[in-house]
Design a protein around this nucleic acid. Structure first.
Lengths: 341, 341
DNA sequence: CATTATTCTGGTAACGGTTCCATCCTAGAA
DNA sequence: TTCTAGGATGGAACCGTTACCAGAATAATG
């Protein structure tokens, strides 16, 4: 006998009706708080519900009502500490409002992402919150347009989508970070991050470039590696940059994964942060403040992002128009930006 | 006009039947792969499905079949990097097998956890994978017994539950870690971790104690702080221990949160790891290998845990009896255990 | 007291599928 | 040729709800 066989038959509204000696429609009315229910009826039904331990089947209710109170949440990788914080805050806020979160990793693949979207549609989720792998895939765009459900994008820009979005103002933070390095006398500032087919990269790049041009300097294009958010990409390109001679005197990494890869490369080459090279990370790893030396960073409030995403979703579910919400970034100088020159 | 109004009416099996000019039962048979379907019928149905862009409603299928292909996943905190790795591996494996994951944080609260379990039951999930907040809550036990669904526990021991479990062999790793410190000459080894009402703590504690008693030493009970997995708890107690005189010469922290709190305390007190104090963390933070100095740790494969949890769940869903799976731990000495004496 | 408005209640039709059952064909066996 | 087995199909019941509609009971009105 497997554990599945144990399932005693489910208690349905019919059983309750029988036990209370009333029509099943009356039970439904009582339970959904319809006004036309006599105290006597309420009494009988509640007694029966209590006695049988009845609980309404959300599946059946969903089929009937056309709303599941389920929200799909698609991200590249839940193990990314930043996304994990976003997901947690988002789940908490959704849960407080009676919604559940169906979590799907897209594993950095447009194909998986697309499959996930289609599966969520078949599951009749009420809405989707997603951090897309890329903005330039026509296939994904087509899939999204066919979703026909409220959508909240995380740090992505896509036209004609009728979607809400939580957008980070990367520009400000990265501008400040780069300007800080320049003010310290750095010019050969490497920048290792993801590809330009996502808003995140483009906005950061804008800040990076502006910091140079605003001070009348040339942007050191040769020290830019814009290709992937994964640690492997950052590892290879950081290693490459730092083996050259002359090499960059400072390094900025964009994103959690890039930072991990770059730190590994620095470690491997025996270069000490804040001494042999100045280092700034965009987005914080949880223990950055106790790292030795403490790492300068461009911070954004991931918790706020998740909460805001849930909030925008709930608004759309209440019939409001899609809208955008902006998250600030803040540069904090710590001792990892000390040396390098 | 809100985005919800856009929803053009759903294409159902009825529309397909009408378009193909056949009975709706025939459409169903064709789509579910029933053997008694003529090539002509298949042709007609497939043409209609294609033309209308029909996709079966998983909700309706679930209601009929009694199986949702949804698995509930309950953990204390998805932002815990270890749990995030577990969750990712688990979701990937479930997804490969056609299941989706409903994620719920219990936020360290037995009450929330219990509510989550009940909600998952109402959502008619096919099974639940959970890392429970505590093993000694009769209320939770009662709730779980009423689940009537396959259950996989993560690192927890509960009797008479008919559940599968992924169990970590903490004993070995912690024993080795403690023995290593003892062999270096440490006796005043502090141990800061969660409460004993979860298997995790008990098994670690067993290893810690055995390392002392096996060498005929007294267990330094006064340096044990077993109360909470949260960083705050570890911060306070580490601070407290290390302000004493004499103070511990070594410190072991059990769990991701404890490690974070302890590192903050050390930082705050200006104590340098691997010099002023020997330090070992149980469970690794993602960047431990590039931390300066690198941190000695008791490692376990979180990815394997998640995959194994999914595997055990799938087995139960296929009618197999509940079973247990054991995950190994491995102590690795790095330079954080150098000094202290 | 008769009549009209209000509660209140029960029956039934959806929601979108699957599956059983009965019927009609067609082909193979006697 | 006649009988039968089984393939192919349509119709209807069912999964567990909610919502509409009609009728019964009660209350309010003239």
């Amino acid at each position: 006998m497997s554990s599945r066989d144990i399932e005693g038959e489910q208690v349905t509204i019919r059983h309750v009706a029988a036990r209370a000696g009333v029509a099943l429609s009356s039970v439904s009315r009582t339970l959904t708080g319809h006004p036309d229910v006599s105290p006597a009826m309420r009494q009988k039904v509640e007694e029966a519900v209590q006695a049988l331990g009845y609980e309404p089947d959300l599946l059946a209710q969903s089929l009937r009502s056309g709303t599941t109170r389920n929200i799909g949440f698609i991200i590249r990788d839940i193990a990314n500490p930043l996304f994990a914080l976003v997901a947690r805050a988002c789940e908490q806020e959704l849960r407080r409002n009676g919604y559940s979160m169906i979590l799907m990793n897209s594993d950095g693949s447009v194909e998986t992402e697309s499959k996930n979207l289609l599966l969520l549609r078949r599951r009749r989720v009420d809405g989707v919150i997603a951090s897309l792998v890329a903005e330039d895939s026509p296939y994904i765009k087509k899939t999204i347009l066919s979703l026909r459900r409220p959508l909240v994008l995380l740090d992505r820009e896509m036209k004609d989508l009728n979607a809400s979005a939580v957008i980070t103002d990367h520009y400000t933070g990265v501008y400040e970070a780069t300007a800080h390095l320049i003010s310290l006398g750095h010019q050969e500032i490497a920048f290792v991050t993801g590809a330009e087919n996502v808003y995140t990269t483009r906005d950061r790049l804008r800040g990076y470039k502006a910091a140079f041009s605003d001070t009348g300097r040339d942007v050191p294009e040769k020290w830019m590696a814009l290709g992937g958010f994964d640690a492997e990409y950052a590892l290879i390109h950081t290693r490459n940059f730092l083996s050259k001679s002359p090499r960059p005197t400072a390094l900025i990494t964009g994103g959690i994964g890039s930072t991990a890869g770059a730190l590994r490369a620095l470690n491997e080459l025996g270069l000490q942060i804040g001494k042999d090279i100045a280092f700034i990370a965009i987005d914080e790893w949880p223990l950055f403040d106790v790292f030795m030396p403490p790492i300068s960073s461009v911070y954004r409030d991931a918790k706020a992002m998740g909460g805001e995403a849930a909030h925008l979703m709930l608004e759309m579910l209440n019939g409001k128009e899609p809208s955008e919400s902006v998250i600030e970034t803040k540069f904090t100088a710590r001792s990892s930006t000390d040396g390098g020159l």
